[in-house]
């Protein structure tokens, strides 16, 4: 048997496997890559179809774009901070119980995750209205005299987004904490570390990978959130996603909308690059420590 024939066999096998991946690749290419490429192209075209950078000039000179960018980053950043404050203790609690109990509690976390975003948004609308349950509770407790404006504003949007992202943040953090060898914590305790000291110096550093994954998911997802600000923002909260919709529906300005889309994509890519950099830095740190 000649070497060339063998080589041909190996190539044929490789081509066979590549062809198996083809249907999925074609679907993703058609309905995800092509649309994004189209937006990129559109953002550089004027109404006559000629190349122009005017679309970018237009959106970058508009105060609305900059305030939308500010709103987007404020929403994503605050959502992330709140997810950490609420999610890390929850993950720690789960990781410290038996798997059996943790799995039951996880059902309660998975349930909202798989509930339609519209159902959840509706729930918050009902809860946070002026005459809603939360305001009623606050008033009957005497914490406030007049109902607080909890929805159709930044705060309402924020609550909806934290609620949507929290399960997605908790799951990787919990998984990372679950993976920590109990003996490491016993060792820390045996050397005299108190619980909070141990959490700070042992548990959190060892679950940094999970926290990083969770944070990336939260940040990347929330950058493009549309439904929550559209419903819970009541027209007063305008991140980039809403601006894109506005630019299209009110002004029919495809060029500017596309340019805004590219701006959003750049934000996502920057976040992704930051994740890689942080992960690289973390790994390097461990190697040298």
């Amino acid at each position: 048997m000649s070497a060339a024939a063998y080589l041909q066999d190996a190539r044929r096998e490789r081509r066979f496997y590549l062809s198996l991946a083809l249907p999925a690749l074609v679907l993703v290419g058609f309905a995800a890559l092509l649309p994004v490429a189209w937006i990129l192209r559109q953002s550089f075209l004027d109404l006559g179809g000629n190349f122009t950078t005017a679309n970018y000039g237009k959106i970058l000179s508009s105060g609305l774009t900059w305030s939308a960018l500010g709103t987007t980053l404020a929403l994503s950043g605050t959502t992330l901070v709140l997810c950490m404050i609420l999610g890390i203790p929850l993950a720690l609690t789960l990781a410290s119980t038996s798997t059996r109990i943790a799995n039951r509690v996880l059902i309660l976390i998975m349930l909202p995750l798989w509930t339609s975003i519209l159902v959840r948004t509706y729930g918050w609308l009902v809860l946070l209205r002026k005459d809603g349950l939360v305001n009623a509770a606050l008033q009957s407790l005497g914490l406030t005299d007049a109902p607080l404006p909890l929805v159709y504003n930044f705060n309402g949007t924020l609550i909806g987004m934290v609620h949507y992202m929290l399960p997605l943040f908790v799951l990787p953090v919990y998984a990372a904490m679950r993976d920590i060898d109990s003996n490491i914590i016993r060792a820390a305790a045996s050397m005299g570390a108190g619980l909070w000291h141990c959490v700070r110096t042992v548990i959190l550093p060892l679950s940094a990978g999970g926290i990083l994954s969770g944070s990336t998911i939260v940040f990347i997802y929330t950058l493009g959130f549309f439904i929550t600000p559209a419903v819970l923002g009541g027209g007063k909260v305008n991140p980039i996603s809403i601006r894109i919709d506005r630019t299209l529906s009110t002004f029919q300005d495809w060029g500017s909308a596309s340019a805004l889309g590219v701006l959003l994509l750049v934000l996502v890519l920057l976040t992704g690059a930051m994740l890689f950099a942080t992960r690289w830095f973390l790994n390097r740190g461990t190697r040298h420590a």
Partner: peptide
């Protein structure tokens, strides 16, 4: 590479896919 490509729609903002797909 293929894996990253197949997962890419999950991190692309929905609004981008939506208007892009609308164009296409």
């Amino acid at each position: 590479g293929i894996y990253a490509l197949l997962l890419s729609p999950s991190v692309t903002p929905g609004i981008l896919l939506a208007i892009g797909l609308f164009f296409v």
